[in-house]
Amino acid sequence: MAVSVRQVEDEALHVIKTDRHPEDEILRKDRLPHIWCPGCGIGVAVTAYIEALKRSDIPREQHVVVSGIGCTGRVAGYVNLDSYHTTHGRAIPFATGLAIANPELEVTVFSGDGDLFAIGGNHIIHAARRNVDLNVICVNNFNYGMTGGQFGPTTPEEAKTTTTPYGNVEDGFNLPYLAAASGAVYVARWTSLHFRPLRDAILRAFQKRGLTFIEVVSPCPTSFGRPNELGEGLDEMEWYRLSCVIDHDADLREIGLSMRKDSHIVVGNFVDVERPEFLERYERVIQRAQGQRSAAQEVGPESKRDQAQAQGGAA
């Protein structure tokens, strides 16, 4: 159905006139205002998540958010859902426990690039490998914002941060490539400018069984944008508008980010494949174990397996 410009404007005015925020129901109003800086992209990612959640047919109480530490780590504190704000780097294994202990839950890990790929880097590759049913949303702002703008695992070479005052000598991770190589069944990258595609990607992630990964490229004007000539939040969003290239079939090896103004940001829904999720496969283990259960009632010298096996294997 066609919607007139007038209608859109009316709705916008209505929103502005009311003291209700459209996402009030899913936000912990009593926790607001939030701590994020003006121009930060985390809020857009949260709104996209909430809009996706509203459109998903999974009951609200089954949605759980798990965060680590950092600016994005605070997401868990603002959503009015069962939410867990864990230790630095450990959101994914914590979420793994939740998701396995209650497979009805739709568990989303919301965290930053540092939390997920530096201190927690080992966990995401293994969670993807074993294909636990988790949605991982990584807000990538290329630095440790909360602690004052130190460089992190996605900071591009030559970028200036408080701990790379002469320019970064390391390369940043190419997150979609890493997630795909580790086995994620769904991999997408959007920016905080791409609200609707991001919302739809999250909705798709809810539908997938297994580990999904969505990178949200986001401005951090306070700590990253200004020292790296990307300007304020709006300036960076404007640059996204000019430089982003949508290419769902991109060669993931080629889509690392330099965040230089003369570069492009390739965005898209890159990977959408099927692979049995961890618990689906573990069900096989349970079936086999229960088939053999009677034999196991007799306790053998389990820990001295070499002897027992040698004895049996030889017969």
């Binding site: 010298p301 001295k304 070499d306 002897q307 027992a308 040698a310 004895q311």
Partner: peptide, 12 residues
């Protein structure tokens, strides 16, 4: 020596 079944013998 390992593999001779000594541990199993002890366990038995």
């Amino acid at each position: 020596f390992g593999g001779q079944g000594i541990m199993l013998a002890g366990f038995i």
